[in-house]
Simulated scan of single mutants.
Amino acid sequence: MTRTWDSTMSMIPKGGDTIWGGFDWSPEGGYECSPKKHKNNDSRASKDVDGDMVKSQSQSINYGRIVSFGKHVAETPSAKIQQIDFRGAVKGNNVAHSNASCREIWTEYHELGWAGIKAVADYKAFTASSLLDLLHFVAPKMMQRGSQHFSYGIADNLDDPKLPNAPDMEIYSLYGVGILTERAYVYKLSPSAECYIPFQIDTSANGGHQQSCLQGGVYLADGDETVPVLSAGYMCAKGWRGKTRFNPSGIKTYIREYNHAPPANLLEGRGTQSGAHVDIMGNFALIEDVIRVAAGATGEDLGGDQVYSDILKWSEKINLRL
């Protein structure tokens, strides 16, 4: 990332609260991080091995609160959270202004001042939509540059974002699943960091047991260790499936998930059945699917959808006009 964080523009969640959930709901609501049956990555034979099951989460996680200032805020019912709107808050002077050494790494954060920093923290929790407002408040120059190239809501004018008129084409979404992946965060203020970003992930926030979805200030969900399932699979699962306003010619879409299995031994390197981000490029099943499609096979020839996650169930919870 650059000092101004411009490279993060492409990673900001798209679709707003409609896709990622709001203050009181999220598509993945009810997800449990306890171990499920997983495959043993033995190149001679793959078989299921029962993982040790633990009690389910005592409280359903709301992944819609992508950023919460404090673990208690992430878990508190919305009716009991008092938010103070940060929009329009007066930005004050920061002690970093008088520290010459800070100017070598100067960013827009230093223009917030403690008044602006406190205003952000007092808002308590941010969803995908309010997170954009936060970035416009914290880094307006960066967001102005980024808005020339990116949009983050749901398009009303579909002249550009819709799929082409190509009914004979097929679209495949191939990705790994079965690895706990970052989905939401617990933050804290760090007022002593004069020259650095004043908001930090609270690494002391944990769920209380080893199989908790909250680990080191990060709420985890199903994914490939980098990209959550919702991001990788939603459009092929529902947004583009059949004839929709995003897919007017009815291009066929297929989901091909590859359930992660760690290497059986060091000789396998990163594994031939890995579902991890990047490592999946060495997954034999994915390579076979790609070669077969390149050779002319259709999605039906591959066996249609191959789904291990709850992406189809989660997609149905998203109320998007199609």
Rank of each mutant, 00 (worst) to 15 (best):
S151L: 07
T2R: 12
H209M: 11
G303Q: 05
K238G: 02
Q215Y: 10
S129A: 13
F86W: 03
A96I: 05
F150M: 00
D202I: 00
A115M: 09
G296R: 06
Q57M: 11
N165K: 12
G303T: 04
F69R: 06
S147G: 14
V186D: 03
S315W: 05
P27I: 01
A295V: 01
G299V: 07
T272L: 08
D159V: 05
N283S: 04
L132E: 09
F284Y: 10
G178F: 02
T4S: 13
G88R: 12
M281L: 14
A100T: 14
S68C: 03
I19G: 01
P263E: 08
A184G: 01
L320P: 01
L134N: 07
I154L: 15
H38K: 13
E288N: 13
K238L: 07
E182C: 06
G217P: 01
G16Q: 09
L112K: 03
G271S: 03
P198Y: 12
K36L: 04
L302R: 00
Y63W: 05
G217N: 04
G116R: 00
Y185I: 12
R321E: 11
I12R: 01
G275F: 01
Q83Y: 07
T253R: 01
E170F: 08
Q211S: 15
R321Y: 09
I197C: 13
G176Y: 03
I171M: 12
P263D: 11
G16H: 09
K124P: 09
T127D: 01
V54I: 07
H110Y: 06
D168Y: 10
G233W: 04
A232S: 15
G250H: 07
V227D: 01
K238C: 04
S43H: 13
L163Q: 03
K37Q: 12
G282P: 02
M169P: 00
P161I: 01
Y152W: 15
G176C: 01
A184S: 15
W5Y: 14
N206Y: 08
E75N: 08
E300R: 09
G92S: 15
F23N: 05
H209R: 15
V227A: 02
V307T: 05
N62P: 00
E32L: 03
T244Q: 03
N157I: 12
L312N: 13
N206E: 13
D160H: 13
T253K: 00
M53G: 04
T18G: 00
G269F: 11
G21A: 03
V138K: 10
A184R: 02
S10T: 05
G303F: 06
M53A: 10
D305A: 02
T76K: 15
E257G: 04
L266K: 12
I66H: 00
S309G: 07
I171V: 15
I154T: 10
N206F: 08
I105G: 05
I12L: 09
Q148S: 14
S173V: 07
